[in-house]
């Protein structure tokens, strides 16, 4: 029987969401339309419309050593063109944000090529060639993985993941890169991801409502969502991993 990956244990909606987000075969639902130009503005790596800066000449123009691995692996568009490595970093609130740092790294590793994800407790950074980065970022911002209020693109000063939300429901941000327009109810980026003010505001849409967030959440939370202890299958799995890790040095036998 062919191996079929399960992506994760659990019988709760959180576990199902995590599996859905990680599975490269399941297409993530698109919920907003942030344009390429808007995204380039938020990233702040280059001016919109300007050429990509390069770290080396395009692969077609340089002599490649005879290497069997290079023959096996098709380079990504960015690698082919010799783009610089750039990054996008996300901070996700633990108040039912759809995606969470560890989950991000897993799903990116399953879905994308030529990436270097870095995972921390409250933020996650994705590094890759600039051209590829813009393509992947569009996916990460325009699909269900992003919520304008609870997920934020933050290159630095990311603190906010575990803090209480502001009165208007926005995640804390020391640099207030995005603000909620009270009249229209739309979240607008007024600074790029490192805090440099933008020439024009970038709209990323309305924050999702509570019901939607609960249905699409990627994190357990006993107060505002599904409690981890309520998912017996998940608990059993985590306990098993913990137990085996602890006994590992003693040659565990099941």
């Amino acid at each position: 029987m062919a191996y079929k990956p399960q992506y994760g244990p659990g019988s709760s909606t959180i576990a199902a969401n995590r599996r859905k987000y990680m599975d490269p075969a399941s297409k993530l639902e698109k919920v907003r339309d942030v344009t390429d130009e808007d995204l380039v503005l938020i990233l702040g790596h280059r001016a919109p419309g300007s050429a990509y800066k390069t770290a080396h000449p395009p692969l077609a123009e340089q002599q490649e050593p005879a290497c069997p691995i290079r023959k096996l692996v098709t380079p990504t568009d960015g690698a082919k063109a010799g783009d610089r490595i750039r990054y996008i970093q996300f901070a996700d609130s633990m108040y039912n944000a759809p995606c969470q740092p560890y989950l991000r790294s897993y799903l990116e590793a399953y879905k994308y090529r030529g990436i270097d994800p870095g995972t921390l407790s409250g933020r996650q950074i994705l590094e890759c060639r600039e051209r590829d980065l813009e393509k992947y970022s569009k996916d990460l911002v325009n699909t269900v993985l992003f919520d304008p209020a609870l997920t934020a693109v933050r290159g630095c000063t990311v603190h906010g993941h575990s803090l209480r939300l502001a009165e208007d429901g926005m995640m804390f941000d020391m640099l207030q890169r995005c603000v909620l327009d009270k009249k229209s109810g739309i979240v607008k980026y007024v600074k790029d991801q490192v805090g440099v003010p933008l020439d024009r505001e970038v709209k990323v849409g309305k924050p999702m409502d509570e019901k939607w967030l609960k249905a699409h959440s990627g994190i357990f939370h006993s107060l505002v969502g599904v409690a981890f202890r309520d998912d017996a299958e998940y608990v059993e799995y985590v306990q098993r991993v913990h137990s085996l890790r602890t006994k590992y040095g003693f040659m565990p036998k099941e």
Binding site: T157, H159, L175, Q176, G195
Partner: peptide, 22 residues
């Protein structure tokens, strides 16, 4: 509560003013 400095204290945008409605 978490601090809201008037200028960005570190990072690539260091010393840029930090307008914040809070």
């Amino acid at each position: 509560g978490p601090r809201l400095p008037s200028t960005i204290p570190y990072g690539p945008a260091r010393n840029v003013t930090n307008p914040h409605s809070m």
